[in-house]
Design a protein around this nucleic acid. Structure first.
Lengths: 233, 233
DNA sequence: CATTAACTATGCTGTAAAACACAAAAATTT
DNA sequence: AAATTTTTGTGTTTTACAGCATAGTTAATG
């Protein structure tokens, strides 16, 4: 896909401020070495163990970053939204992908060739630093998540997941309904529990008036209480 | 502490290959802005929530990086050995420390002022990139750890912890005894379980002939079996 | 629109691991 | 060396959660 077409399709360079630090030449070089793909719902973008060939930016849609765990249980590490980068960690650490990524809904992804990305990152200091900041944040989140998932009880973990969905994707126009309509299974994989426990706990929350449920739409009724639950189980 | 003294005390620049990419001026600048401290066993080096003022390199000893969890339970994120860097993530992400660090045994730490470190990292591309690689690796480890700790059973988690101690610190001259003599409590905090379960499971392993125990000395007798246990609980 | 498949809901059962309780043994401190 | 604290070891109880079964409900597909 040519440079022209990515720029007419969507304002690529405006999507993430990270691009701002590139020179015009570097931008051109990146875009010459990039393609755009569309993925259908649940299609796998890359799989744990694969060798990285591109760094990616999500243009449209939503994707999940997850790891296959023990006995069919998968754990969602994080959910991405448009303008988020992914797939660069493995190539910087010089290894294979540690996680899998699949489309949560129909998604458009901008693929930049490994070579091109690594070249630019090593010639543009500011660009490198911004990715470093990105990773430093992710690492902080990862460590916190690890303690949350291992030490909090089911209610706390689910409450936390709901709050993080709010932070990440925001609310519908009613200022209460999560804009992210996830299946119970995904919600379970995000909060490290079985699907039935996600369902059970969700209805518990509804019974208590903390949330209300309409299919996959979850309305947060008492966010303070949700925070309280997430803090102490 | 003067530059001269750090260089006579220990060969600072030889401790970690990361220093190699600095110019002599940059090295001098770093060292002018650095001090060396010694910490007693169990002394806290920095605490979760503190504002970072230095990046650090462990010179001698061992330290634990951990997070206080729910209800007095702490989780060891990783154990460091000499030449390892720490404390730089928070200042790159521009936040407070996300983890606490305490000396596992008497330890010597090289402290580089935040300003100096950030300046050099932003002026030396290669230096920046090397820290990025460091973080990319840590992030991979963190994600894997998260799945291990949440999905594996006690036996698997403990086996994994023992193997990671071997990888990180190696073995005594007998080529079997872990060079790291940890308390049962630390071992528990590393493998996300209660102290009594660490003790119990450790004796179980000993009964099964996988390891043998002499106080805090743990001898690995059947590493293959340990790998098997770690893989499938 | 009928059939199949996927998702949601709820109850029941089993169990892994936490919590608690108490000794005994080491290690520290006085 | 006595006294106190910390660590290790083991048994018992409790419980949070996984696992399974089943049924209703919604969505996908021929």
């Amino acid at each position: 896909m040519s440079k022209k077409s990515t720029q007419t399709e969507f304002k690529l360079w405006e999507m993430n401020k990270v691009w701002d630090v590139l020179t015009d030449e570097q931008k051109a070089y990146i875009d010459e070495n990039a393609v755009v793909y569309t993925f259908k719902k649940n299609e796998i973008i890359h799989h744990e163990g694969d060798t990285p060939t591109h760094m990616m930016m999500l243009v449209r849609g939503k994707v999940r970053v997850y790891k296959e765990g023990v006995g069919n249980r998968s754990q969602i590490i994080r959910m991405l939204k448009p303008c988020d980068f992914f797939g660069y960690r493995a190539m910087i650490a010089d290894g294979t992908y540690n996680t899998s990524v699949s489309a949560f809904e129909e998604s458009v992804v901008y693929f930049v060739k490994k070579e091109a990305f690594l070249n630019v990152i090593q010639e543009n200091n500011r660009f490198c630093y911004l990715f470093m900041v990105e990773m430093a944040r992710d690492l902080g989140v990862a460590d916190t998540r690890s303690v949350n998932l291992t030490q909090k009880h089911i209610r706390g973990r689910l409450a936390e997941a709901l709050l993080s969905l709010k932070d990440n994707y925001g609310l519908d126009e009613d200022q209460a309904t999560l804009s992210m309509y996830m299946s119970r299974e995904d919600l379970a994989n995000l909060s490290n529990m079985t699907t039935s426990n996600a369902i059970r706990t969700l209805s518990q929350f509804a019974d208590e008036g903390v949330i209300s449920i309409d299919g996959r739409k979850i309305k947060l009724l008492d966010e303070e209480q949700l925070v309280r639950i997430s803090r102490m189980g």
